[in-house]
Simulated assay, not measured.
Amino acid sequence: MPERSIVPRDVTDDIRAVIADAGVSVNVDLVARILATGIGLGMDEASRLNLKITTAALSEMRAAFRLFAPYAGTPKVTIFGSARTRSDDARYLAAAEVAAALAERGWMIVTGAGPGIMQAAVEGAGAERSLGVSIRLPFEQSPNAVVADDARHVAMKYFFTRKLMLVKESQGFVCVPGGFGTLDEMFELLTLQQTGKAEPTPIVLLDEPGGAFWEGLRTFVDDHLIASGVVSPDDFDRVLITDSVEAAANEISGFWRNYDSMRWVGGRLVLRLRAEPDDAEVDELNERFGGLLASGRIERSAPLAREREDDDRLEFPRLVLRLNQIKVGSLFRLIQAINDLPSAPPMSGPPV
């Protein structure tokens, strides 16, 4: 393989000319980097297999981005579960009911577009409130009849691009008992939250009435993972285990009761809220969560200069803090406390 090198300047200029000729005028620098990376792969003499993987991944992401783009302003919840669950199973009914309850509250439902629990969720929400991201497999799974011919569906070759879209676009998650795939999706959610690679979101593990599937997982986490020190004692506290459809829907909606969004500005974390806490409430938050801070206190704040420059949700009151990055996985506990403050508004609609 030739010695690794950067794309020559004259080629970079040609790339920008091609972009201009195509009429692209937004985020030109990032589009140029995508094209330059492709040329760089050629310069590296990447194998045909590696180039096929790259090409397919980019094509699939583009198709998925186009699918979700018209619904950017609509909050979404992804429902995971087994493709093998039969329509007469109590878990099928639970998935349909929670999807219907959330759709009624203004949420769109995102699923893997397959049979079983995925079809139950689409049936519960209705095709007009559903988006599907299916996987092409040589056996077992094909798009369910509700979404197969619908414009609200995209098919993927690779699990990693599919999981990206099932997680990236949603502000809440419901996992219904399933096999390796469902557990893989659930553990990836927990890993992203624990490591701070994704913003805090509500995660519900929903079972049939009286079901013990997820309670068995809790026992395994307590007796093996926590006991052996490979996860922290509160890492599993971020999920709600329930057999109640109403409790599941309330957990998803309630997470956004007062908390709106977050943003890092330099070393400061900004939490945007629906209602401003008073002095006593801020003092209580500092007393309870001071151990999460790298320095200073949790303070009320007007929008920071960078936020004003970007016109970024300026209408919301704010709390600003310097979070100890090692403790980013515990941020969900602070958000839960903010939602429980006396000044918080009553249960409201989904995030926008």
Rank of each mutant, 00 (worst) to 15 (best):
231 V>W: 09
285 L>S: 05
290 G>M: 03
233 P>T: 08
257 R>N: 03
296 G>Q: 01
305 A>H: 12
233 P>F: 08
287 E>S: 09
297 R>I: 01
314 L>K: 09
218 R>E: 15
286 N>L: 05
278 D>G: 13
288 R>S: 12
257 R>P: 12
289 F>R: 12
308 R>F: 02
292 L>A: 00
268 R>T: 14
276 E>P: 10
284 E>G: 09
283 D>R: 04
304 L>G: 01
229 G>T: 04
259 Y>K: 11
234 D>K: 12
256 W>Q: 01
232 S>V: 06
233 P>N: 10
293 L>R: 08
227 A>D: 14
294 A>Y: 05
254 G>T: 03
272 R>S: 02
223 D>I: 02
316 F>L: 06
266 G>C: 12
297 R>V: 08
300 R>Y: 06
299 E>V: 08
231 V>H: 03
273 L>K: 12
239 V>E: 11
249 A>F: 08
316 F>Q: 02
281 E>S: 11
233 P>E: 04
224 H>N: 15
308 R>H: 08
282 V>R: 08
313 R>T: 10
268 R>K: 15
270 V>M: 07
301 S>N: 07
226 I>Y: 02
224 H>Q: 14
271 L>C: 04
256 W>H: 07
271 L>D: 04
265 V>H: 06
257 R>Q: 15
220 F>S: 00
228 S>C: 10
286 N>Y: 12
272 R>T: 01
317 P>V: 11
247 A>Q: 14
299 E>K: 04
221 V>W: 00
237 D>W: 12
233 P>H: 12
314 L>E: 07
288 R>V: 13
302 A>P: 02
296 G>F: 03
299 E>R: 05
238 R>Y: 04
225 L>A: 13
311 D>P: 03
312 D>W: 14
264 W>T: 00
229 G>S: 03
269 L>H: 05
316 F>N: 03
228 S>T: 14
228 S>H: 13
266 G>W: 11
236 F>R: 14
265 V>G: 01
312 D>C: 10
256 W>G: 00
221 V>L: 00
